[in-house]
């Protein structure tokens, strides 16, 4: 197992191929839950958790069931089905066994059951031809990237809330403009990661 390749996968999925800022997936929770820093951290951790669990389940399903029977075209519908019911199961399980964790994480779980970022990660892992360990690392990276984007943006939003915004830009417009600036900043990472470790 090439550790260097794994680190490259991790770094590039955090910075270069950031799901929110470069692939524009998962924009809904990104804009919805980024008003406060502690909320965005909770959401980010929940997303990391769900992405890891979803990948751990969907990769074997794709490899051992769908590919085996030549049913690649069922990928989307099966993944949605599996991820949604899995997250529901985890929520029920947490509520019973670890109420404290459910209190901090549980409220975000229903929000991300069929989140496009989660589905995107699992499908991209297959399309990029990763093996199981590479898929898990890539999911971890994507989750961390989501967390990073959420925390950065919630910090930026608290600045926006305090500033005097022109009437026409108040609310969502100025938020989207700010998001586009962060997104442009992240485009600067393109091409850096491969060369750092080279």
């Amino acid at each position: 197992m090439d550790v260097k390749a794994l680190i490259i996968i991790l770094m590039s999925s955090v910075l270069v191929d950031n799901y929110v800022l470069n692939r524009f997936l998962g924009i809904c929770p990104f804009l919805g839950v980024s008003k406060k820093v502690n909320q965005s951290v909770g959401m980010g951790i929940a997303v990391i958790f769900v992405m890891l669990v979803a990948t751990a389940v969907t990769w074997p399903i794709q490899t051992f069931i769908l590919n085996e029977f030549g049913l690649g075209y069922l990928q989307t519908i099966v993944f949605i089905l599996v991820i949604a019911s899995l997250v529901q199961f985890i929520e029920i399980f947490l509520k019973k066994t670890i109420p404290a964790l459910h209190q901090s994480l549980g409220v975000y779980l229903p929000l991300i059951t069929t989140n496009c970022a989660v589905l995107g990660v699992t499908i991209n892992n297959i399309t990029d031809g990763y093996n199981f360990i590479e898929s898990m690392v890539s999911s971890l990276g994507c989750g961390l990237g989501f967390l990073l984007a959420m925390v950065l943006f919630s910090g930026m939003r608290s600045r926006i809330e305090e500033s005097d915004v022109p009437e026409n830009f108040k609310g969502l417009p100025v938020t989207l403009v700010a998001a586009s600036f962060i997104s442009m900043a992240f485009f600067g990472f393109a091409g850096i990661v491969e060369n750092i470790l080279a």
């Binding site: 049913l71 099966v78 089905l81 599996v82 019911s85 199961f89 029920i92």
Partner: peptide, 23 residues
């Protein structure tokens, strides 16, 4: 294809039903 989708759906459904009962 139908069989695979139905079986996966069935497994997920039974799992959730059991979970909501036991947990």
């Amino acid at each position: 294809a139908l069989l695979v989708a139905v079986v996966i759906g069935l497994i997920a459904g039974i799992m959730l039903a059991l979970a909501s009962h036991f947990f």
